[in-house]
Computed example of a mutant assay.
Amino acid sequence: MRSSPHIVVLDDEVDITQLLANYLPAHGFRVSQVHHGKDLVELMERDPADLVLLDLGLPGEDGFSIARRVRARWQSGVIIVTGRGDAIDKVVGLEVGADDYVTKPFDLRELVARIKAVLRRLLALPAPLPGNQALQFAGWRLDIRARCLHDPQGAEVALTGGEFELLSTFAQHPGRVLSRDFLLEHTRGREAAPFDRTIDVQVGRLRKKLQAPPETTEIIKSVRGAGYMLVPPVAHG
């Protein structure tokens, strides 16, 4: 991880952005403050962020659409930090690509822990695999070192940081039923909440991206009451 990851705080409450701008640098982060979606775009064009802390209740553009654009255009991490604690909002936030969802009021130490957890997944190289760094299944190729996925025709398919970690875990345990608790521990660790639908949301997104050939069964199978399993065999190379 770089010594000073760039964090952008987008919130229309100046007190919140100033609080984080004062607190986060002591934990090794470089912080920028913006208060509108258009200001975020201007900033990201000249100084892209490693991670955006994003409020949903913004004037003008909806926070969910901003989160979607950040992931698609700049591939930066996103943590939604909002006063909206409804379960539906959390699910929608994760579906549009957010890496985590924190409700206000928040504990500053917990927020720092969540930021570090997301940055570890996004910026740190994964532990090397023996031999070749690519895993292949049903014509798909998952490059562990480059953190990218290619479809059977060779086109790259965009994955969020959470989706990549989840698919990597499946690909390293093919043919094995993995419980939600196991998947949470291997993708989010101690930051996972006791009741966390992140895995279900991310599996749903992966299924949409991993279109199985017509002659094959589904790639990620639900096992009722047990979890999920990557169905096709996996080869290194």
Results as ranks from 00 to 15, higher is better:
V9N: 04
L10R: 06
V14Q: 05
T17Y: 05
T17E: 04
T17M: 02
Q18D: 01
L19F: 15
L19E: 02
L20Y: 04
A21G: 12
P25K: 12
P25I: 07
G28T: 11
G28C: 10
F29G: 03
R30C: 11
V34L: 05
V34Q: 02
D39Q: 13
D39F: 15
L40I: 03
V41E: 15
A49C: 10
A49G: 06
L51V: 11
L51A: 08
V52L: 08
V52Q: 04
D55R: 01
G60K: 13
G63E: 11
F64M: 14
S65P: 09
I66Q: 12
I66P: 13
A67H: 09
R68T: 09
S76Q: 10
G77V: 09
I79C: 14
T82M: 12
G85P: 05
V91L: 06
V92N: 06
G93M: 09
E95W: 15
G97H: 04
G97I: 15
D99T: 02
K104L: 12
D107H: 03
R109W: 08
A113R: 15
R114M: 12
L119Q: 11
R120A: 01
A124T: 07
A124R: 05
A127P: 00
P128D: 02
P128R: 05
L129E: 04
Q133K: 00
L135Y: 00
A138H: 00
A138I: 00
W140S: 07
L142W: 04
I144Q: 04
A146L: 02
R147L: 08
R147F: 15
L149T: 03
D151T: 00
P152L: 03
G154S: 00
G154M: 01
G154W: 03
A158P: 14
A158V: 08
L159A: 04
L159K: 13
G161H: 00
G162C: 05
L166M: 02
S168D: 06
F170D: 03
A171G: 04
Q172C: 11
H173G: 00
R176P: 05
R176L: 09
L178A: 02
R180T: 11
R180P: 01
L183S: 07
L184M: 11
R188E: 04
R190M: 15
A192T: 06
P194E: 00
P194I: 00
D196F: 02
T198R: 14
D200R: 03
V201A: 08
V203L: 10
L206P: 01
K209V: 07
K209C: 04
T216I: 05
T217H: 14
E218G: 11
G225A: 05
G227V: 07
Y228S: 06
L230R: 01
P233R: 06
P233C: 03
P233N: 00
V234F: 05
H236G: 10
